[in-house]
Design a protein around this nucleic acid. Sequence first.
DNA 1: ATCCCGTTGTGATCCGGCTCACAGCCGGTC
DNA 2: GACCGGCTGTGAGCCGGATCACAACGGGAT
Lengths: 240, 240
Amino acid sequence: MATEQLTLGPEERRKLLRGSFIFRDVDEAAVDRLAGVAQLRTLERGQHLFSQGDDGNALYAVANGLVRIWIGGAAGKELTLAMMEPGDVFGEIALLDGLSRTTSATAAADCALLVLGRSPFLEVLRTDGNLAQHLIELLCERMRNNTETISDFAFLDLRGRLARKLHELAIAHGEQTKAGLLIGLRLSQSELAQMLGVTREAVNKQLHAWADKSVLKLDKGKVVVRDMAALKRAADPVRD
Amino acid sequence: MATEQLTLGPEERRKLLRGSFIFRDVDEAAVDRLAGVAQLRTLERGQHLFSQGDDGNALYAVANGLVRIWIGGAAGKELTLAMMEPGDVFGEIALLDGLSRTTSATAAADCALLVLGRSPFLEVLRTDGNLAQHLIELLCERMRNNTETISDFAFLDLRGRLARKLHELAIAHGEQTKAGLLIGLRLSQSELAQMLGVTREAVNKQLHAWADKSVLKLDKGKVVVRDMAALKRAADPVRD
DNA sequence: ATCCCGTTGTGATCCGGCTCACAGCCGGTC
DNA sequence: GACCGGCTGTGAGCCGGATCACAACGGGAT
């Protein structure tokens, strides 16, 4: 469907890095140097990039596609923590502290990634205070997200967590249609369930409960949000 | 019981900051300057320091006592995320990104804290790459902890989470006695429950289940671990 | 058109943990 | 000592979601 981007010219690489938030205001020559030594890596949907526990000596920038960041539990269970989109950077934790990867990463769609090696990156980090500053901001943002996730697990049931997630998806990837906000990302109910740490069946039942109340409309795998306010309310622990 | 430390001399302040991991290798004059402008703040057990949502314009270093870091949910429920001990630093997220506090902080024992104001701290941060580097490492460590917490919530039941927590507490605060590893921190079952996001009753029942199997011994509010290996096993999702 | 395989839809059953309701207990305080 | 407030111990009942087991659907490949 999407045009495959199998290669990236030098100019495109520079653009990608410069466009990324963490390299804003960083010395341009240094960024260009990084762009020069970066590897291009393409992945097909479903292909594995790295696993929890691996040594992590690279930082990734998404040029194209979608990468699922997840952790695994007993019996093959998986919890999806985030989806990385074009322009996003990930893999910074293990790169920065030199320990093993805390999560796994898998292509959720065909992808093109820029791979920045550890040593050239750390070299720029050592000399450029702006990069350090932006990395700190990135890490703070991640911390806030993580804390939110913990809060959701601790205080909300399936219904509340699903409501929040749909609300978030509708805002981030919603397309306005006459029926309501259509959620752009094609997510199966199983994938949705994996983002919430619940079963697919339970998600299915809650979606239909909302469809019955006209909060949502379900149309062959796509979800259309008809009543954002009701979702918002359901996400609050104050029940209706 | 503990000797109250109501004041800290200039020398002690410097020592505290220098001993803190984030100020290692940072220009000594700068650290001393920070120590000079830092405020001393004492708190009695139960006293509130800041709340989720507040503006956060200070960094705290624990000189003495214990600070509980927590988030709140519906109906007054609380989840304890961490306990800060002497030598620990906290409150960095809101300080660094300028947004509101992600957590609340309450004294879990009488405390003496050093309060570093935003602007002098950021000034040193701007000029000293080592401080930035250490902050990045601190944030990475927090991220790892958070990810672990999420994993626990997603994949472990009460039994597994409690086993892990006790194991951790025994290692961090265990005192060897003839009966086994006595957990030093005086934690009520409610406090334990708050660290796991479960009810006090459920914790009580699991503790007694283990006591019956001689994994633990319960002695007037104190927990003695008799069989660390069994705890470790219970923390694995592979059941015994 | 046919065959698949991944997805959706839905009931039956089971179980962990919550809620509620008390009953000792232990340590302080007056 | 007598009283009180916070902790501990424990049972009854309930409920949200997991598990299991199918049925039906839809879209791609051949």
